[in-house]
């Protein structure tokens, strides 16, 4: 019985952490700008590998075009 109460209490702590503590922390001055930026730009900050985050695909395309394609030299040249 004691162990089930401990499990119940830890579940309550988990729910409070996810539902109250983390949203509160995300509103604090230090975290807020970054959290807001992630939400606005739709960045998934939880990705484990580069394939989990779509920003990596954009970076890949941009750098490939910037460093290999050299559009500036061809178009703006004259």
């Amino acid at each position: 019985m004691k162990n089930w109460i401990r499990l119940g209490l830890s579940l309550v702590v988990l729910v409070v952490t996810v539902g109250v503590l983390i949203p509160w922390v995300s509103e604090l001055g230090v975290f807020r700008p970054l959290v807001q930026s992630n939400m606005e730009k739709g960045v998934d900050a939880t990705g484990l590998f580069y394939t989990d985050t779509r920003e990596f695909s954009g970076a890949d395309n941009h750098l490939r075009n910037a460093l290999v394609g050299e559009p500036v030299a061809h178009v703006a040249g004259h």
Partner: peptide, 12 residues
């Protein structure tokens, strides 16, 4: 360390 955190910090 984490890939997702790099994207978040970079996008910021």
């Amino acid at each position: 360390d984490s890939t997702g955190a790099v994207a978040a910090a970079g996008a910021f």
